[in-house]
């Protein structure tokens, strides 16, 4: 069962900002991204910085408004306004109140726990400040009891409600962020680099917490990460993004050896601890030149990776590859995916 589906999402940002900005030069941050997240599924988005993974996630909760494309959400029992025949709602058309309700079904957890919690609020206020505006607000006394229960669930204690975020360590603060998101019993949790700022020993604790929570609550997760090992371990399916486009989508578990797109293979070959004999040749990814890091500004016709790809030929430079299914649940945007075997 699909919970959320995005189709052909696109977002461009003006390259210049400020009062004197000229318009007309755009960065294509997200360029035709389609993905679907199933019920009780963890979907991973990986890629280098600037590839558009966070922007995609923000488009899904309408923190940014997409330029084009569609986002559909299948609410489980919740009333979110006008539904289509298949029981889904069009997220981009939601009105103000329906959007508030939608955002209580889809919660966002941010990267840096030190900067996403107000140091002057008590943990109780942090947890309840969003809940207050949700349609299911039960009153302060009941909400506090729920907040205490959720803190116990994430491995803190009810007495921590009175304390303030600076009294906690990084791992504990991330638990508070997760508790804040879980309090509304969401269907989907968007975890944007939630373990990147943590030490290795604490990172394992948070990953185990998310896995337990998933098991208990049948929660879907969109997991954004730049650490490929963590993503492959935690997710069920992974989408690899490059310059705002989805390049490859495959089951997470074996992506490290089953990758077909030259970019994915290059990415994995660069990861520390990767066995060079695993067949992924770093040289096959091609050189990273200055041009390969320039954001995509104009309507480039060919493959986004062609400038960097060692396999690229004239067809790659002139014709954008389709995102085609090459094996069950394995899709690749490459003209030469078969040749790359």
């Amino acid at each position: 069962m699909i919970l959320l589906e995005a189709r052909d999402l696109a977002k461009r940002f003006n390259l210049e900002a400020g009062f004197f900005a000229r318009f007309g030069k755009f960065v294509r941050a997200v360029n035709g991204v389609s993905l679907s997240i199933g019920e009780d599924e963890a979907y991973g988005l990986v890629g280098e910085s600037g590839c558009g993974k966070s922007t995609t996630a923000r488009l899904l909760v309408r923190m940014y408004e997409a330029d084009s494309g569609a986002v559909r959400f299948w609410p489980r029992g919740a009333e979110l306004g006008k539904m289509a025949d298949d029981g889904s709602v069009d997220v981009r058309a939601l009105g103000r109140r329906a959007l508030v309700a939608y955002r209580s079904r889809v919660k966002y957890v941010f990267q840096d726990p030190a900067r996403s919690l107000d140091p002057r609020m008590s943990v109780a206020d942090v947890l309840l400040s969003g809940y207050r505006w949700s349609p299911s607000w039960p009153g302060r006394a009941l909400a506090l009891a729920e907040a205490a229960a959720i803190l116990e669930e994430v491995g803190l204690s009810a007495s921590d409600l009175e304390r303030r975020p600076p009294e906690f360590s990084g791992g504990q603060r991330q638990r508070i962020s997760i508790a804040r998101a879980l309090l509304l019993r969401p269907d989907l949790l968007i975890c944007d680099e939630v373990v990147s700022a943590l030490d290795v020993s604490v990172q394992g604790q948070i990953l185990n917490l998310l896995i337990e929570t998933r098991r208990r609550r049948k929660l879907s997760i969109l997991f954004i990460a730049h650490d490929l090992k963590v993503a492959c371990y935690f997710c069920d399916r992974i989408g690899v993004m490059y310059k705002g486009e989805m390049m490859e989508e495959a089951p997470a578990r074996d992506l490290w050896k089953a990758a077909l797109h030259p970019y994915t293979r290059f990415l994995f070959a660069s990861a520390p601890g990767m066995d060079p004999s695993a067949g992924n040749d770093r040289a096959a990814g091609g050189a990273v030149t200055a041009a390969s890091h320039e954001p995509r500004t104009d309507a480039w016709e060919g493959c986004a990776y062609a400038a960097r790809c060692p396999l690229a030929d004239d067809r790659c430079r002139s014709q954008r590859p389709e995102f085609r299914e090459i094996a069950p649940a394995h899709r690749v945007r490459c003209h030469k995916a078969d040749a790359a075997e």
């Binding site: 290795v200 020993s201 990172q203 394992g204 990953l207 896995i211 490929l228 090992k229 963590v230 492959c232 371990y233 935690f234 997470a252 578990r253 074996d254 490290w256 050896k257 994995f268 990861a271 601890g273 990767m274 066995d275 695993a278």
Partner: peptide, 11 residues
């Protein structure tokens, strides 16, 4: 032991 490695999966 705290960090995942390639080939390991939460399941």
């Amino acid at each position: 032991a705290a960090a995942p490695s390639f080939g390991s999966h939460w399941t």
